[in-house]
């Protein structure tokens, strides 16, 4: 066996070795993003304008933020299909709270409403997490069920229609969260960066993050090592719920309502963003910035479709569906080579 020499610090390795160790799956999404940018520029010169790119970044913020949460769930070996419906539900609760007029002070009310949204999101995630772990049911089934429950309860709360913010002063208080700018960057972009930074810190730097990846890599090894697998799994769903709530806080100011189409197919987009970002669906590997990059790519694809006339923009769902399938195929071939 050739491995029988002990490693020394400061060892030198050949370029070939380094190249082989280079994490192809980790770089691939950013290469793909660069290629998409070139394609976008070829289609329409305005595509690469700062304005257009910031626009795209702002519009992808909901999916990017949710995808950060989904990265936790998926890298722990789980899956959450309920994020789209949960968005509609949390948005509905947040708006109903604001419409309730429990407080006179506008800014204070917005702050409390945000806390209510985040609490609702965390509890919704906790529901997914506890049913999956304590009930020992496949997350696919659990979140398929809660997807229907969140959607249906929202429709019921809305009495079949939509839940809109009733006061126009409230709307004006909220609007800057979506349309505002700080240091030239739109607020939603700042929020993406903040969520990404916190997410990356938790996943890569803390013992909890290490446990998330261990559980996703091999649940049995984690259990035999004294890791509380259920607790770790359940917490990833809570993180997902909080991320959904943060996305809602950015979303509500934009539309001012929760409607029957709020969050529709967002689970597809969030999971696609995570997968094309290089996170393995079987768990054990999580790439926060890859997921954010994935969400950005999905929005760019939509943007290119609008700017060009190749494909009808009504087919955007079909294109996104195709992307996730192609991404899985590519991921598999990269793994084989690795």
């Amino acid at each position: 066996m050739s491995e029988e020499t002990v490693a020394r610090p400061g060892e030198t390795r050949s370029f070939g070795q380094r190249l082989r160790e280079t994490d192809l799956a980790g770089i691939a999404p950013f290469v793909a993003l660069a290629l998409l940018m070139v394609l976008g520029y070829v289609v329409n010169e305005n595509f690469l304008s700062v304005n257009n790119l910031l626009n795209v970044a702002t519009r992808c913020s909901f999916i990017a933020i949710i995808a950060v949460g989904a990265t936790f769930v998926i890298s722990a070996g789980g899956l959450d299909l309920s994020v789209g419906s949960m968005t509609a539900f949390v948005a509905g609760i947040m708006i109903l709270f604001m419409n309730g007029g429990y407080m006179a002070d506008g800014v204070g009310l917005v702050a409390v409403a945000i806390l209510v949204a985040i609490g609702t999101g965390a509890l919704s995630g906790l529901l997914n997490g506890t049913v999956t772990t304590l009930g020992r049911i496949e997350p696919f089934i659990v979140t398929l069920g809660t997807m229907a429950i969140f959607r249906s309860v929202t429709v019921w709360l809305a009495d079949g229609g939509s839940i809109a913010i009733s006061s126009s002063t409230m709307r004006s208080y909220l609007r800057p969260i979506y349309t505002g700018e700080i240091l030239g960057l739109p607020v939603p972009v700042w929020i993406i960066l903040a969520v990404g930074l916190v997410g990356a810190f938790v996943l890569y730097k803390t013992p909890f993050g290490r446990h998330v990846l261990a559980v996703g890599s091999n649940e049995e090894v984690a259990r035999y090592s004294g890791v509380s697998v259920s607790r770790v799994r359940a917490l990833t769903y809570v993180i997902q719920g909080v991320c959904v709530a943060i996305a809602v806080v950015v979303y509500v100011p934009r539309l001012g309502a929760s409607t029957t189409t709020t969050g529709l197919l967002w689970e597809l987009q969030a999971i696609t963003a995570v997968v094309i970002g290089g996170t393995a669906l079987r768990g054990g590997v999580g790439r926060i910035w890859g997921s954010i990059c994935g969400a950005f790519m999905l929005e760019i694809v939509g943007n290119i479709m609008v700017l060009s006339n190749f494909v009808s923009e009504y087919l955007i769902g079909a294109v996104q569906g195709a992307i996730i399938i192609v991404a899985m195929l590519m991921q598999r071939s990269l793994m084989r080579k690795g």
């Binding site: 990846l213 890599s217 090894v221 004294g226 054990g284």
Partner: peptide
Amino acid sequence: GKGLLLDKTLATNLTLATL
């Protein structure tokens, strides 16, 4: 199957139980 995370580094495995 139950002792080591085969796809993780040596250090990650070493400290997993006592992180």
